Amino acid sequence: MTAQQRPAAHTPLGTQVRRASGLDHNPLCRPVDRARSRTALALPLVLALLIAVGAVVAVLAFRVETHAEQGTARHRHAVVATTVGPAVTDDLRTGGSPAHAPARWAYPVGPGSGTVQVAVGTPVGSAVAIHLDDSGVPAPGARTTAAALSDAGVLGVGTATGLVSLALVGYMVHRRTLDRRAERSWEPDWERVEPLWSQRR
């Protein structure tokens, strides 16, 4: 073996564990090699932890949003309104855009009227399901559990993806730093170890 030779690129897992724990007594195993082994073994654990963090974020977000929507639902009341005028498209450039129409409805606080969202082309006299707030004013209904679950999932996946990406970048930077350190120290380390390895005095 000469000073130009290098250790195998892919070290077995058992060797990595012994090296990282300091139990590898091979004289060719340098501190930088142990640092590389510790980094390689820590990466899967860190990634698993970050994925778990993303899952926790998703669960917490779902609970918060569900609680908020439950509060909203207590102040929303479903009624049926009747359109009393033609539907007017919000955006004339796009026929598929939402439309609004004047409508009337009955509510415990008294009859009401206003503008409600309808499908394009809804004829006069159509029944439209709407939500009113406690004062009888049209308001958005509470979001569904499926919508809250979808948003929480997106947030959790986004959080995990961002953290994992940062961890991988940090790992590559750290690994490259260790590789450069190993390259710089290879010659002096070999000069120190070669007599022991070859039994030369």
Results as ranks from 00 to 15, higher is better:
residue 168 L to S: 05
residue 48 A to I: 13
residue 69 E to C: 03
residue 178 L to T: 05
residue 18 R to S: 11
residue 193 V to I: 15
residue 93 R to V: 02
residue 201 R to I: 00
residue 146 A to V: 10
residue 64 V to Y: 01
residue 11 T to I: 14
residue 166 L to D: 09
residue 152 A to E: 14
residue 135 S to G: 04
residue 146 A to T: 11
residue 48 A to M: 15
residue 86 P to W: 07
residue 170 G to W: 00
residue 149 L to T: 06
residue 111 P to A: 11
residue 110 G to S: 02
residue 31 P to W: 01
residue 154 V to I: 06
residue 4 Q to R: 08
residue 141 G to T: 01
residue 123 P to Q: 12
residue 199 Q to R: 11
residue 120 V to M: 09
residue 160 A to M: 14
residue 1 M to L: 03
residue 69 E to P: 14
residue 23 L to R: 13
residue 86 P to F: 09
residue 55 A to S: 06
residue 151 D to E: 13
residue 165 S to W: 08
residue 108 P to W: 09
residue 108 P to Q: 07
residue 67 H to E: 03
residue 154 V to R: 13
residue 51 I to M: 13
residue 168 L to H: 02
residue 127 A to P: 12
residue 66 T to K: 04
residue 142 A to D: 04
residue 94 T to A: 07
residue 164 V to E: 04
residue 188 P to E: 01
residue 38 R to M: 15
residue 157 V to G: 04
residue 55 A to Q: 08
residue 65 E to A: 03
residue 83 T to P: 05
residue 90 D to H: 02
residue 179 D to M: 05
residue 74 R to L: 04
residue 37 S to E: 12
residue 9 A to T: 07
residue 5 Q to W: 06
residue 139 A to F: 00
residue 117 Q to V: 09
residue 11 T to F: 06
residue 104 R to T: 10
residue 196 L to G: 01
residue 90 D to Q: 08
residue 23 L to T: 04
residue 66 T to I: 01
residue 127 A to C: 14
residue 127 A to F: 13
residue 126 S to N: 12
residue 21 S to C: 05
residue 177 T to R: 02
residue 72 T to I: 01
residue 129 A to D: 15
residue 3 A to N: 00
residue 112 G to Q: 05
residue 155 L to E: 06
residue 128 V to K: 15
residue 116 V to T: 11
residue 8 A to I: 10
residue 78 A to L: 12
residue 173 V to R: 13
residue 57 V to G: 09
residue 164 V to F: 07
residue 99 A to F: 10
residue 131 H to K: 04
residue 127 A to Y: 13
residue 53 V to L: 14
residue 54 G to I: 03
residue 9 A to Q: 08
residue 28 L to C: 15
residue 193 V to G: 00
residue 15 T to P: 02
residue 81 A to R: 07
residue 92 L to E: 10
residue 72 T to P: 01
residue 147 A to E: 10
residue 52 A to H: 01
residue 40 A to E: 13
residue 189 D to M: 05
residue 29 C to G: 03
residue 72 T to E: 05
residue 176 R to V: 04
residue 60 L to C: 01
residue 126 S to T: 15
residue 176 R to Y: 01
residue 188 P to Q: 03
residue 145 T to K: 04
residue 39 T to G: 10
residue 169 V to Y: 06
residue 166 L to N: 02
residue 76 R to L: 11
residue 181 R to L: 06
residue 51 I to T: 09
residue 49 L to R: 11
residue 10 H to G: 09
residue 149 L to E: 08
residue 35 A to I: 06
residue 29 C to N: 05
residue 125 G to S: 09
residue 145 T to M: 01
residue 143 R to N: 00
residue 45 L to Y: 12
